[in-house]
């Protein structure tokens, strides 16, 4: 897994591009034309920064989902937390949290994780009713998540299931960044006892002197991820770093 992350991160640092090697702004422009559903049209029409935009100038938003399980093809979203931010400030006061009723069963295992129970979601609306609101908070911004493939795949699948077409956008992944920053020991080094460094959210945060936050609440996790991103950039990159070097 870590090896994959490392390869993935190094491949991306060469300059992240959208699906089919198409630059993200070009992809957005095309999708604004091709998408059928008005929500998605609006989302893509808001555009995305070009790859050479310095991080300091990019409006950002940290997100986190709690889900019924790990497999996006079988599981669904239970809650969404988002916190808008820039490199200077995390606008927690504009943070939002939605509970949504998943279309797949809530497993006992996941309840243990996020503490969201059947009775909590029985009264919650379906994601389709919240999608307008959620997409509006994401549009025009670059989205940050820790292990962004989860958020990317779940949202894409969930939207596809409801609107008949999915949604994809560039993302910054604090886990991939950390994997690139913390060079993992080679196989030889591991044979001599070197330990892999954990790039889980809580462990990564600790490296930057960030406080412990209880995991598995979408809003706290989004904030935790946003804080980690600020710390990673402050230590290893700068506001002048082009976003195209980091996003995927």
């Amino acid at each position: 897994m870590a090896g994959f992350q490392q390869r993935f991160a190094s491949k991306l640092s060469g300059g992240g591009v959208g699906p089919g090697n198409e630059p993200w702004p070009v992809f957005f422009a095309r999708m604004a034309e091709q998408a059928q559903h008005p929500l998605l049209k609006r989302f893509y029409a808001a555009g995305t920064p070009t790859g050479d935009t310095p991080l300091a100038e990019v409006p950002l938003v940290a997100i986190d989902f709690e889900t019924t399980g790990l497999d996006a093809s079988k599981c669904d979203i239970v809650s969404v937390g988002i916190v808008p931010m820039t490199l200077n400030r995390i606008y927690n006061r504009q943070g939002r949290h939605w509970l949504v009723r998943p279309r797949t069963a809530l497993s006992a295992d996941s309840v243990v994780f996020h503490g969201i129970t059947h009775s909590d979601i029985d009264n919650a609306p379906d994601l389709s009713e919240q999608l307008d609101d959620i997409l509006e908070h994401l549009q025009g911004k670059v989205v940050i998540a820790h292990c962004c493939s989860i958020e990317r795949n779940f949202l894409d699948m969930a939207v596809k299931a409801r609107l008949g077409e999915g949604v994809v956008f560039p993302m910054l992944d604090t886990m991939a960044l950390e994997a690139g920053i913390q060079r993992q020991p080679t196989l030889i080094e591991r044979m001599f006892g070197a330990r892999r460094k954990s790039i889980r959210l809580a462990d990564s945060r600790e490296r930057y002197g960030l406080p412990f936050y209880h995991p598995h609440h979408a809003l706290s996790d989004a904030l935790a991820c946003g804080e980690l991103f600020q710390a990673q950039i402050a230590h290893h990159y700068s506001g002048a770093t082009a976003i195209g070097n980091l996003w995927q």
Partner: peptide, 13 residues
């Protein structure tokens, strides 16, 4: 708590 924002500063900033 709902009105509080957050910021990170690296040592020496």
């Amino acid at each position: 708590a709902s009105q509080t924002d957050v910021a990170y500063f690296k040592a020496g900033t």
